[in-house]
């Protein structure tokens, strides 16, 4: 009985008006959660955590660099899952969500590259190195831009979304390359210090809490921005349809 209700409600999400309403309700909460987590995370990152004994204060960049890098990759994985659903079941709201992820993912990739560059300057003595991880992250940025460009180039939005979904799936090969690049090639970028599943993290406990808070914050923000953008796309594409007209008539 309960299972059936869940199933029916889940299927209803495929309907634009229902999805729109849900996104409208959910998005402020996610933004609120982001602000809260980010406030705690930033306070701890900038004031509570002691300076590193080797890197002094410059390591504080980690608290935005690492969550952004994770989110840039996680966002791509989310888009890839949405792309599979969109291509297999042809649900329009899912197609739109997959496309809405690209600009946000690109933004996080940009943050990751920019802050990494700012961190590299005092620590490595250079803004940029043609190291495996940096290069593959740059490639990820270009894939994100390619997806956005391809989607925008089509007159027919649905066709554009589906074609871009294929590109998302092809680009997935880059994700393991980024993830393992620091282990396959020993270059300037340090290896992974955080381990969730195997072994111990090589980071001191006192440095962990802000990272956790910032990671949660960034994830909530991704969700919020995704819903906001998907909502706009729906509104834009359905502007001649009844539900948009009715919704705007109500609000006016």
């Amino acid at each position: 009985m309960i299972w059936k209700t869940i199933k029916v409600n889940f299927h209803r999400l495929g309907s634009p008006p229902t999805f729109y309403r849900l996104a409208q309700v959910l998005s402020p909460w996610l933004w609120g959660g982001f602000v809260l987590c980010a406030a705690i995370g930033l306070y701890q990152a900038l004031y509570v955590v002691p300076p590193d004994y080797q890197q002094s204060d410059s390591f504080r960049i980690l608290y935005i660099h690492v969550p952004s890098a994770w989110q840039a990759m996680a966002g791509y994985v989310v888009m890839a899952i949405l792309a599979v659903i969109a291509l297999v079941w042809r649900i329009r709201t899912v197609e739109i969500m997959a496309m809405a992820g690209a600009p946000i993912g690109a933004a996080f990739t940009f943050i990751c590259l920019a802050t990494g560059s700012l961190w590299g300057r005092p620590m490595w003595g250079t803004w940029w190195a043609w190291d495996a991880r940096l290069t593959s992250m740059l490639v990820l940025l270009f894939i994100y831009l390619g997806i956005m460009g391809l989607y925008a180039a089509f007159e027919d939005r649905r066709k554009g979304a589906r074609v871009a979904c294929i590109l998302i799936l092809v680009g997935v090969v880059n994700i393991p390359i980024i993830h393992f690049s620091v282990e396959w090639w020993t270059t300037l970028h340090q290896g992974a210090t955080i381990r969730l599943f195997s072994g111990e993290s090589t980071m001191h406990e006192s440095m962990m809490p802000p990272l956790v808070w910032m990671t949660i914050a960034v994830k909530l923000m991704f969700g919020a921005a995704l819903l906001d953008r998907a909502r706009n796309d729906l509104l834009d594409q359905d502007r001649r349809k009844g539900w948009v007209q009715a919704r705007l008539g109500e609000a006016a």
Partner: peptide, 26 residues
């Protein structure tokens, strides 16, 4: 693949190189 993806667009040529470049880096 890039040619096939951009087939339905009318400004394919600029997109083509943007799509090909990241995929052939390896």
């Amino acid at each position: 693949l890039a040619a096939a993806l951009t087939l339905g667009t009318n400004r394919g040529s600029i997109l083509l190189s943007i799509l090909v470049f990241p995929l052939v880096v390896p």
